[in-house]
Computed example of a mutant assay.
Amino acid sequence: MLPVDLNGPTVARLDFTENNPRVARADLRDTADFDALVNEMLAEQNAAIGVGGYLENRVIYRRSLHFGPGQTVNARSLHLGVDVWMPASTIVQAPLPAVVHSLFDNDNFGDYGPTVILQHELEDQTFYSLYGHLSRLEWRSLSAGQVLQQGEAFATIGPYPENGDWPPHLHFQLIADMQGRYGDFPGVACPEEREKWAELCPDPNIVLQCQKLV
């Protein structure tokens, strides 16, 4: 999926929950400051790549009204995918044979930015994979229905602000049922609905096979 070894020595797990005091105290509305914090967290672990996030109850979504901060109910903070924190322009490859299901530029502050959803068929089962925070450059050349071979490059990680205004990273998510949606799918849910969303969005490490996420 990425042209790197996610089990290599330069990979570290990053914690964006309230258990990380630095993240919990930080004002992350300034993306440049947020990016500097990510790089500091990586440097402290002698790492170049950060991974993590599946079903993590995160504090970082408080930076954007897109997730309902300040609400007493329905504020979303439960992450449904895995994030891979890497430099912008890193190539993204199809993990399995696929067809481009849909794409859309979800350009709200804190949203996915350019997004691609792939459809896969495996042992007579249909499922989907979502890629968020991409670059618009390669994204513009894709089209729904386009066939991709396993390992074929189809996108790159985008820079901020075009990637939804996040420090550069890939949001990777598996989806069992698109529920009629196109170009978008919730990547963060209410913690109270964990069981429902975990069934709909299984652990992406089934594909990634990253030991840091076990």
Rank of each mutant, 00 (worst) to 15 (best):
S135L: 03
S135G: 14
S135D: 13
R136S: 14
R136W: 00
L137P: 07
E138H: 14
E138P: 12
W139R: 01
R140K: 12
S141Y: 11
S141M: 14
L142C: 15
L142V: 12
S143H: 14
S143C: 14
S143M: 13
A144V: 08
A144Y: 08
Q146E: 15
Q146L: 15
Q146Y: 13
Q146P: 12
L148R: 00
Q149T: 11
Q150P: 09
E152A: 00
E152M: 03
E152T: 06
A153K: 00
A153Y: 00
F154E: 04
F154P: 08
F154N: 04
T156M: 11
T156W: 04
I157M: 02
P159G: 00
P159Y: 08
Y160A: 06
P161N: 07
P161L: 06
N163M: 02
D165S: 02
W166A: 05
W166R: 04
W166T: 06
P167E: 01
P167D: 01
P168T: 07
P168E: 09
P168S: 00
P168M: 01
H169R: 03
L170S: 05
H171S: 12
H171E: 12
F172K: 04
Q173V: 01
L174H: 03
I175C: 11
I175W: 03
D177Q: 13
D177I: 06
M178C: 05
M178H: 02
G180H: 03
Y182C: 09
D184M: 12
D184T: 04
P186I: 06
G187F: 10
G187H: 10
V188R: 02
A189G: 07
C190K: 02
E192C: 05
E192G: 09
E192R: 07
R194N: 03
R194D: 00
E195I: 00
K196Q: 01
W197M: 00
W197K: 10
A198Q: 09
E199K: 01
E199W: 12
L200E: 11
L200Q: 13
C201P: 03
D203S: 04
D203Y: 08
P204I: 15
P204M: 11
P204N: 09
I206W: 08
V207K: 00
V207S: 02
L208A: 06
L208K: 03
Q209L: 06
C210Q: 10
